[in-house]
Design a protein around this nucleic acid. Sequence first.
DNA 1: ATTCGGACCTGAAAGC
DNA 2: TGCTTTCAGGTCCGAA
Length: 278
Amino acid sequence: MPELPEVETIVQNLSSKIRGAEVSSFRLFFPGLIRNKKKKILEKLRGRKIINIRRRGKLILIDFDNDLTLLVHLKMTGQFVFYPSHESVDKHTHFILSFKGQKQEVRFRDVRKFGFIQCLLTSEALKLINLGPEPLEISFSSFQNLFKGRQACLKSLILNQNFIAGIGNIYANEILFEAKLHPINSVSLLKEEELKRLWKAMRLVLKRALKHRGSSIRDFKDAEGRVGSFQNFHQVYGKESLPCPHCGARIERLRIGGRSSFFCPQCQREKSKILIEP
DNA sequence: ATTCGGACCTGAAAGC
DNA sequence: TGCTTTCAGGTCCGAA
């Protein structure tokens, strides 16, 4: 479900509600959710205060005042939502954190159970995962450097979290449309001017999506239970056979690296590796 | 060294 | 009304 804009939206919700809150109790319904071998480590969170909630790529990090951090990945259908404590718990709720003096508790729900939570030392939390730079923080020249010596196909590369962190399938499609670049192009063929378009498109699309509090296609809800609205502004994602909003050509769908890729064959031209001289 | 399919899960929607 | 197939905001792993 969640890519950078959705995860950031949830992190903002959580920050405003539970930064500084003290954990009174937790409940774990699906032990497989916790990646640590010893689930008992969670006991160390009881009575501790949350000092910070951060995002890195698509990961949520909840830092506690005893140098422990909960690393959370929502994967496809994970949700963090506040519920009144008295409300009944449904079968997709796998973990609940309750706070001292608060009538609301935060519940982790995940229909497909792909998501995970891991409890780590704060200083170690990001060391396990090799994440690329943040797309909204990287300068153009650093961005350009990332591509040196690479020759993968463009769409696969920007979906690769080691390359750049936080972009998933929806935003990869939308960014490439905005940049007018064909998803299957090899990055080795891109000129500086095209990389600049890509960098600008990446920033523009992600910032717009943040402003609209993410895209809700089927499962995404923020921590207040609200849906995002950026799905209303998608140009190509999920729009196979519909007219391109720019030129009217029919949007096509292609499978790249096992993921659906939507693009306008007119606006996003494929580059041929073979130069045909007349 | 990359790329591919399958695996991990469940449920909604489409196809027959 | 079924029953079956396909698809889904992600990532990991092992085999070609």
